[in-house]
Design a protein around this nucleic acid. Structure first.
Lengths: 365, 365
DNA sequence: CACCACGGGACAGAATCCTAG
DNA sequence: CCTAGGATTCTGTCCCGTGGT
């Protein structure tokens, strides 16, 4: 009864083996029934003020914490959301998953992160895990879009899902408008006088790269540029690096006067090539980076970049997921038709873009 | 009995409302008892091959997945580990948590990430959550070391815990040897002829910064440098930026000829100041960065940096945590005394260090 | 008598429904 | 109508006991 006894099995020095208190222990100590304890803790209906007080005291004295596993069983809900992505170590997505985590946390959900390394079997394993744990929702981020088995598994998993940077009509999707982004970049370069613009891109298995290349080629078509495809260099593995892609581009019979680099890793490699070849930015080659980072912001020279608000994307996606979860709990089938949000990008002008040295041949296009 | 009926509630097109199959359903369908199903799934003892086959068929047909919550109750284990850190969005820790996640995953554990924003109340909330969920372990990363309540909560949480970048004798700790790192940096600069070396550091609440400043001052003392403390600039908030710290340093009556920058964010700001003031690196100021990143690797000029293997740290820490968890399950109290691992750093020489312009006054120290 | 496969029941911790006062 | 106790439920695991070899 005295709350100031700090020895023994008091709150301090909990022995590892000590079983933690259950709701039954609390009920006994407070001299009430289990049901009453539950009611006090979840304040579902009114209980006698005195008993409520005794319960709260008992909870404090026993350092009682409800067991989530037991709650999960009854409530059929875990308050956990899986975040499945290719690589949690990719700094590009750091802000995104931070925003997701934060939003979930604000509603008392926890986020469990699963990296798949963009490997199909691990994607399937992650989905199976999500099912075993009966997670309340899934945030699925990027990765190749065309794996039929994975897409089928997502459809069958039976857990509300939102997808980020994936275009799938079955779920709510949240994508950056990379088509518009690459257009912004290309038009900025054209405005500076460039008519031959190269593109260095990672493999187009995942949506972001695919959409960018798509957007670029569409723009070329609109402008009547016929050899746009020749100027798009796809970097496949880590071996076939951005360094080589940049070199191939610059050794073309009629090399580009400007380059759009997709992804921060590639940008670094392109810059390395330029340094190695003794070429200057922007004098010998103008550069726009898709994606803003420390290198574009603080490098020398600072690189013009296309930027977008990943924090917003993550927050919106998580918010929508929570809506879906609530709707399902309510009993209604779900919450209306799927939505597909597209986020605009913006151009940050810096010193890496200048007029081409040889006053570009404008006859093309 | 026919397994080829694919309509209705078959695996494809699971309706959202459809309750997922339980072990009882499987038992009924296979015509065996619940216990037998359990034995087949966990292959604890031998069961009749025919019955086992029937069970496996039923599992496949019903698309049965065991319910973790129910397993947790009996097994008193969740196969989940909490990763508590200040900010999951900080790219500095991306590799670290990726390694932790990967190591846990290899042993079929899931990682739930919790950001605290380095706010005491949220740290306590994270620990409470870990207790509610009965996580099997905790990886605690960085954050201010001196919050008594937090440290008490870690001690009382009753869950095996390892700590990264925190020096706490009660747990296994895994720290980078920043004292050695800053020494490496300083000695490299001294070897190049610098005797006045400035330091720009974030607030020393957290261990990494504290250890670095400590190491620097210790070195100064050894060398008989008496005004080392004057050359250490602590940047507190985002307002009092690295830009200003660099400026203050360079406007000293006798400014340093070299600077050690702690943290990538600060490095960028120092470089910004240099550009704004029209000063060149390394001609007007040599720089060594503690921490390697894109900016140090690919910037212009590339910056000499102190680097370490965070992936290893994370992997080791997670591995040790798994050992502790196993040991506790085995019944033994724990697994021996706590360990405190320290990881060496290494210097990567790049072009940001040169001899000081005015052949340094060597009479000091 | 030892052994094995297997069924049946107790159990874990919390929520919720029913019912009696 | 409000309060609170008691029984029931959720899903798997583990142990015990039985019947057959």
């Amino acid at each position: 009864m005295t709350g100031d006894d700090k020895r023994g099995e008091g709150p301090t020095g909990r022995r590892p083996g000590a079983r933690s208190a259950t709701i039954k222990d609390v009920a006994e100590r407070a001299g009430v029934s289990i049901g009453t304890v539950s009611r006090v803790l979840n304040n579902t209906t009114r209980v006698n003020a005195q008993k409520a007080e005794r319960v709260r005291e008992a909870v404090a004295e026993l350092n009682y914490v409800p067991n989530m596993a037991a709650q999960n069983m009854r409530r059929k809900t875990t308050r956990m959301v899986a975040c499945i992505l290719t690589d949690i170590g990719n700094p590009l997505y750091a802000r995104l998953i931070a925003a997701v985590q934060r939003k979930l946390n604000d509603s008392d959900y926890s986020m469990v992160a699963m990296s798949t390394g963009n490997v199909e079997s691990r994607e399937l394993a992650a989905l199976a895990t999500a099912r075993r744990y009966r997670f309340d929702g899934i945030v699925y981020i990027t990765g190749s879009q065309d794996r039929a088995e994975v897409n089928a598994a997502i459809a069958e998993v039976g857990i509300p899902t939102v997808q980020i940077e994936r275009e799938k009509p079955d779920n709510d999707t949240f994508c950056v408008d990379h088509r518009q982004g690459v257009r912004l970049a290309a038009e900025h370069l054209r405005a500076a006088g460039h008519s031959r613009i190269g593109v260095v891109t990672p493999g187009i298995g995942a949506r972001p790269a695919a959409a960018r290349v798509d957007g670029f080629l569409a723009l070329c078509a609109e402008l009547g540029v016929t050899d746009g495809a020749d100027l798009v260099r796809q970097v496949q593995g880590p071996v076939d690096s951005g360094f080589n892609a940049a070199m191939a581009l610059m050794r073309l019979a009629s090399p580009p006067t400007a380059v759009i680099s997709l992804g921060s890793q590639l940008l670094a490699e392109v810059l390395q090539y330029m340094a190695a070849a003794g070429l200057a930015v922007p004098e010998d080659l103008s550069i726009v980076s898709i994606g803003d980072n420390e290198l574009t912001r603080f490098g020398n020279p600072p690189i013009s970049a296309i930027d977008w608000d990943f924090a917003r994307v993550g927050s919106d996606a998580a918010g929508r997921l929570l809506q879906r979860i609530d709707a399902r709990r309510g009993g209604g089938p779900d919450d209306g038709p799927t939505i597909a949000r597209l986020y605009e990008t913006r151009l940050i002008e810096r010193r890496s873009v200048a007029a081409p040295k040889a006053p570009g041949r404008l006859h093309r296009g």
